[in-house]
Amino acid sequence: MTDGGSTRGDGAADTAYAHAAALTLPCTDEPAARRLAAAVAVEAGAIDDDRSRASVSRADATVTVELRARDHTALRAGLNTWARLLDVASQVGAARDNSVS
């Protein structure tokens, strides 16, 4: 994952993954988005399989996970997984921010 860019686990493009979706999460500020993106980016590539791929990017205070899948079932499973990862990571980040202030 790079600031303002995106990476997939191995950085390659996949034309065989015809189904796509994106999850976009606005954060309170850029440092929060940077922490969230770093927290979930380690999973890009690690949880990819032969049916789906994900990439994580950040632009300013927004984190986006782009998903590509070979079929609708794999896309739905990927959306569910990444939505949970983003939710948990953002809750942990919010708890951290609240305990610091």
Rank of each mutant, 00 (worst) to 15 (best):
T2I: 14
T2A: 11
T2N: 13
D3Y: 10
D3P: 08
G4M: 04
G5P: 01
S6K: 07
S6D: 08
T7N: 12
G9H: 04
G9P: 15
D10P: 00
G11W: 01
A12Q: 14
D14S: 05
T15C: 08
T15D: 11
Y17V: 06
A18G: 07
H19I: 13
H19F: 12
A21H: 01
A21P: 00
T28I: 10
E30G: 05
P31D: 12
A33C: 07
R35I: 11
L36Y: 04
A38E: 15
A39C: 06
A39I: 05
V40R: 07
V40E: 04
A41M: 04
V42H: 14
A44E: 13
G45N: 06
D48E: 13
D48W: 00
D50W: 14
S52D: 07
R53W: 01
A54P: 13
A54F: 01
S55N: 03
V56N: 01
V56E: 03
V56S: 02
D60A: 13
T62E: 05
V63C: 06
V65E: 01
L67W: 01
L75V: 01
R76E: 11
R76G: 07
G78H: 02
N80M: 11
N80K: 13
T81H: 08
T81G: 05
W82G: 04
A83L: 09
A83F: 12
L85N: 01
L86H: 02
L86S: 00
D87Q: 14
A89N: 01
A89Y: 02
S90R: 11
Q91N: 08
G93E: 12
A94D: 09
A95C: 09
R96K: 10
N98W: 02
S101N: 09
